[in-house]
Nucleic acid binder design. Structure first.
Lengths: 238, 238
DNA sequence: TCCACCCTTACGGGGCGTCACAGTCA
DNA sequence: TTGACTGTGACGCCCCGTAAGGGTGG
């Protein structure tokens, strides 16, 4: 004697609404194995198992259409599609993390300037959506033409000096941002930055903001370094 | 003389489709400031700025309805709503991370058993969706009645012994999972586990699976400890 | 005349929530 | 009679994509 479930019983077991089961019946995703004389739906153990699979797959981000395919196609490789879904989830995670970064950036803008520059927001979205090939040219989305030229000239051609400085800072990460060591490193950083952007302080700020917000794709510098410098800067000129 | 934009120009500037701008016009979210004689839409700088704000807010997860409110209500505190949206994003992140954990669990199941037990999947979803108050009772969702009783009896009443063991393991995390130290710790763990679940080995496995998958809310043990034990176990009985 | 833009109108889709109305069994 | 449970049917939502069919300026 097999155990049978009414529609509400099944709902309670799986935290699914009645409407949802009606809908799944309608689209032939989960048709009850039997109908009582009153036309009431009656589900058996297999139906329950199937529903549990549906619920689980849905939680993992599969669409009902995809789930349909998984059931229909016996040769369907669930293992492979689970792995694929894993990649999709990873992408979604990355997207949300980017959104969080952008959010922090905007909140910080607002805290220091009292006004949010939304054009920067949409520029950043452009950067975040760059594909692998175009990532290297992020600055073209963020800066205007003149600024881009300046950036290419000074940042890219003198990369070695920057990297050396950041390596040095990395070694001193444990020292307090208040310390003389930190002040000294900050001074060195300002010297390099001013050599490049002293004539265009607005650009200097703009770039610094971008780095601080973690908006640069494949940043060659450790983010900890940026945070450290940022803290050191705050201590000196609050 | 103000700069004006045709609809396609605006689209190119903001990576938004024409249809979308039509729609925004339709719902009065972004009505172009002017219309040419041909009824063509003409946007000015303000419209552009507004669109940039819309795009940014949308990227951050706001609905069009919410954005509408933000514009309409002058007293609207954008700062506060940005912060709120930050919380929403954090929740979404958490959800995705949970889904990733579940996915790993299922893939691992499939790798060792060749068959996925979907009922476990839906049980786990039940656990993951527990609110703060009910988290402590996660095992009631995961285990059946008899198992729950056993768990309450042995796991909860002897918590101190478990915690002591896990603390000891934590101190030895750096030792290789191959080493004698590891073997010894694993032995201790088996002794404790068997004292509790020796008579119900299926339950022992079931609980271990749950821990390994990181499905226990507010787990009192460091996850590194679980991973370490897991590796040590694999080395001994592959 | 042809082309490049632009317009409006309308259907569809995903995954149900939410009525409205009716039947059945205790 | 009441009321708990169930059934079917249909509209709505949200954010557009995707036509279809037609206008205008160069």
């Amino acid at each position: 004697m097999k155990k049978m479930y009414s529609i509400t019983e099944l709902c309670q077991l799986t935290s699914v609404s009645v409407r949802t089961l009606h809908y799944y019946d309608e689209i032939n995703l989960l048709t009850p194995s039997f109908r009582a004389n009153n036309r009431h739906r009656r589900y058996d153990e297999n139906d329950l198992a199937r529903l549990q699979q549906i619920v689980t797959l849905k939680y993992l981000g599969f669409s009902l259409k995809q789930i349909h395919k998984i059931f229909k196609d016996n040769k369907f490789d669930i293992y492979a599609s689970l792995k694929m879904q894993g990649e999709a989830l990873a992408e979604e995670r990355a997207r949300i993390k980017k959104a969080c970064n952008l959010l922090d950036y905007l909140i910080h803008q607002r805290e220091s300037n009292k006004v949010i520059d939304w054009s920067v927001g949409s520029k950043i979205i452009g950067i975040l959506n760059l594909n692998e090939n175009d990532k290297a040219n992020w600055y073209k989305k963020y800066l205007d033409n003149a600024e881009s030229t300046t950036y290419e000239k000074f940042a890219k051609t003198r990369t070695r000096e920057w990297l050396a400085l950041f390596e040095e800072i990395k070694k001193n990460l444990k020292s307090s941002p208040d310390s003389d060591v930190a002040k000294n490193l900050l001074k060195k950083w300002h010297k390099l930055a001013d050599a490049a952007y002293g004539k265009t302080p607005a650009l200097k700020t703009k770039l610094w903001e971008a780095y601080k917000a973690g908006l640069i794709p494949d940043m060659p510098y450790d983010k900890k370094v940026i945070t450290y410098l940022s803290k050191a800067g705050e201590k000196i000129s609050p």
